[in-house]
Structure formats: C-alpha cells, structure tokens
Design a protein around this nucleic acid. Sequence first.
DNA 1: AAGGTTAGTTTGTGGCACGTACTAATTTAG
DNA 2: CTAAATTAGTACGTGCCACAAACTAACCTT
Lengths: 164, 164
Amino acid sequence: MTPLGEQPAPAHAGEGEDLGLVDAMAQLSFLVHGALTEIAARHGLSIIQTRLLGVLRDRTPTMNELGRYLGLDKSSITGLVDRAQRRGLVTRTVSAVDRRAFLISITATGRHVGGQVAAQFAGHIETLAAGLSDADRRQLSRLASQLVAAGANAQAANQDATIG
Amino acid sequence: MTPLGEQPAPAHAGEGEDLGLVDAMAQLSFLVHGALTEIAARHGLSIIQTRLLGVLRDRTPTMNELGRYLGLDKSSITGLVDRAQRRGLVTRTVSAVDRRAFLISITATGRHVGGQVAAQFAGHIETLAAGLSDADRRQLSRLASQLVAAGANAQAANQDATIG
DNA sequence: AAGGTTAGTTTGTGGCACGTACTAATTTAG
DNA sequence: CTAAATTAGTACGTGCCACAAACTAACCTT
C-alpha cells in the first residue's frame, strides 16, 4: 500500500501504530479504494462504473448532468455509458423535452449488480471495523463525515471562485 | 462525489450530517483519492507515479519487488518505470548480483517532485481537518490507523491462505 | 551440459480521461 | 421569423493504467 512514502512499522510494533493524520488518511483511502476496486472487479465493474450505477440508483440524468455528478468531461461520459449500455446495465432514452438529450436510466440488471457490489463493500467495511468498539465506530463515522463535509464545502467555495 | 448511492443531504441539514460508517468511508476515500489525483496532476504525475516515487524514497528495489510493493503485475511495471524514466524521475541500474535484474532508484528530480506532491497533499489534509479539535484529530488518526492495520492483517491472512 | 526457473520486455486487449473538432437541436437577438 | 450563438452529445486522437500470454536472456540445479 505504501502511499507517499512512510517507513515500515518498527519490528517491535506492540499493537496499534498511529500513522499520523496525513499518512492515515492516505493509507485509509488506498485501502478503501482498493477494496472497492477488487469487489467491483469481481462483478466485472470498474470503480467508475460502480459509481455510475450508484448515481443512477435514484436519478435519471442526462449525459451532461452525469458528467457533473461524476466530475467527468462529457466526452468521457459517452464511452462510460456506451460500455455500461453494451453490458445491459443502463439505457439511453431520448428526452421528451430536448431531442438532443438522452435520459440515462439503470436497468434491473444494473440495479442488481450495483446492489451486490454495495452490499459486499458494506460487508467489507464492517469486517475492517469489527475490532472497533461501538463508541469508536460512531466516532470514526462522525469524524469522517465531518471531513467529507469540509471537502464538499471547499469544493463549493472553489466553484464560486471559478464562477464569480 | 456520490459513491455507491446515498441520498442527498436533507434540505434542513442543520450542520453536520453523519453518513454512517460505510458511506463515510466510501466518500472519504473518494475525497482523499481525488485530492491526491489533482495535486499529483498539477505536477504532471498520476497517482501510481506518485506512489512509485514514494516507494523509492527509501528503497532501491528490482522491478519485481516494485510490483509487489505496488500490487501490480510485472508487465505493468515495465511501462510505469519506462514513463517515469523518460521524465527523469527514476533510473534503472543493472544489478551487480543478477545481470537480468534492474535496481530502480529515484533521481534528485524525482525526489523533489515527489516531495512537493507529498507536502501539498499534507497541506490539503490539514486544511480539511482544520475544523477538528486536537482531540478529534488524534481520534481520527488513531481510528484510521487501526482500520489500516486491520486491512494489512486481512491481506496478510489472505496471503497465507493463498500460499499454504 | 540440459532442463527448469526467474527477471524483465513485448504485444495485444480493454478501460479511463482528456482536448479538440464536429453535428444536430435549441435558444436568443435583431 | 430568420440568423447567430449556445448547448447536448459524439468521434477521434493521445496518453496512461492494468492485465494476460508469449518471448528472451540469465540463472540455478542436477
């Protein structure tokens, strides 16, 4: 895993090494990302395909909107949806309002596969956290959520700066 | 960000939504991964190139060993090192012990660029965590480290199962 | 010296992500 | 109401990542 260059744990590692916030975040990110990559791959999906299915779980966006949800260029969306459609995971429907636009929706198959990946991912995280006390789990959930919120705010602020 | 399909935050979102452990881990992973991707890209690096430089910070492995560090097939390593070498970030040196093998080492340039990415990444994490109290930061660092350790153990156990 | 193993490369396939250029539909301006 | 500008999506070219299979060269074993 070794993300940005930390030392290997000392041989006499008593029990729980604290990596420090920065390395802990980096390594945790790689750990979770890698787990999701592997679980998704077991179902023939990439991470981005999995995220696509997640977004479509309760939305029917246009290609353009999809690009905003996933943070991708529209030219990337074409191929992404092409491949997903070829596998029967999503469908394109011409918009009734704008004949240029497609509405992308998830198929039953897509929903099924996406659900399986999500469930296995949840199981994996639970396994990883099995050693934590209930209080620690709540703490971790709360603190991680706070960082995510901070990140979302930073992104929103950036948007404003770009627009204004 | 929307990883596996969570609901958008309720409109009356008072202040800090708790996503639950699973979604918090997924979103945090995407947040950190995305930040590293963007910072690395500012220096013309991909994530994997950045990790390569991180590994080489205090090691001079062969191609093969590099593959194990990064979890990549040896055929992937060839291209990865090729591109890094073309940019003057790393060098191949024929092993004195085994004339088939190369020892891969980081150049001064590579060390410099890698250091910049690492520093900016650290700064970014610190910014994200700026809203946390010292106690919360320590908690988060500790809990994240514990998950990482759990993941490392799981991986080791898997190895054993595969080998034995 | 022969046979098997190991290190690394090559080639082919597929996916991800971008920028640019393009077509077609829609909206805006005059 | 038409002409110009904008918008939605695609096509194409580039580069990177990742793997599998086939290959060469060096090494080890016997």
